[in-house]
Amino acid sequence: MIAAIDLRGVRKAFGEHQVLDGIDLLVEAGTIFALLGPNGAGKTTLINILSTLVSTDSGSAVVGGADVVSDPESVRGLIGVTGQSAAVDPVLTGDENLRMMGRLLGLSRREAGVRSRQILDQLGLSDAARRRAGVYSGGMRRRLDLALSLIVTSPIIFLDEPTTGLDVRSRRELWDIIRSLRTAGTTVFLTTQYLEEADELADRIGMLSGGRIIATGTPADLKAQTGVQMVELRGDSDVLLREVPTDGSLRGLRLAIDDLDAEFDDGEVTIRRPSLDDVFLTLTGPADTHTGAGAPRTERP
């Protein structure tokens, strides 16, 4: 395997808070890697380290063959970044934002204009090209933000929760664009809170919890560990009595229901897809229930 990103023992603390506690990770060139984790797991901090915004306390981080600490300039010449906060210029129009970025990425004035039109068209922003980015809707601003990191082809693209806050249709469109990046040979490193998104897009998933990678694998690997469906039994006033993971087959479902039947007299059965919480609970075990998924914590920049 040829790695585009190679992390070894990366640690980072903000004050007392150990945000990243020894990250080891390899991302193969030309693939989509999804870093999955709840709020506060350290996803944004890791993206900020890889995109040279934040330094490491210890360990090494190599992006495209260049060390992010000792050779940040080379790393910056390789990457495109779309962060969580839409980093667009609200006073400039969509087209002007793109042209400016094109010029800063080494395009000539003419090339920047041509590329701007192409990418606006590709992301469905042509109609808004001459309007100021400040009046865009949240979804449009995110697409423009993405467009800004796509105006030139970068070997490696970082996307920090690219679809958070988007409606279903925009999310699907964005997924198609991200897949087309891989087709063009770009390595995509994205973070997400949604299991479904990681499942849909990623060649490999890394699960981040409490500043550590607690599992890596293909989506199929991870799902094999959690089951693909959860059977819930709820009692009076919707109190969850028990939930059982199943493999989604008829036989599995019957076994699960038999299991519940033996234990409880009555209740309402529902079947749902496993959530991120389920995956984390499975992986971290019951002992970590209170510190794992779902615990609200503030995401550090």
Binding site: I2, A3, A29, G77
Partner: peptide, 10 residues
Amino acid sequence: MTTSLASRPS
């Protein structure tokens, strides 16, 4: 191994 990619020039 890690691949060494060509960085954009200044």
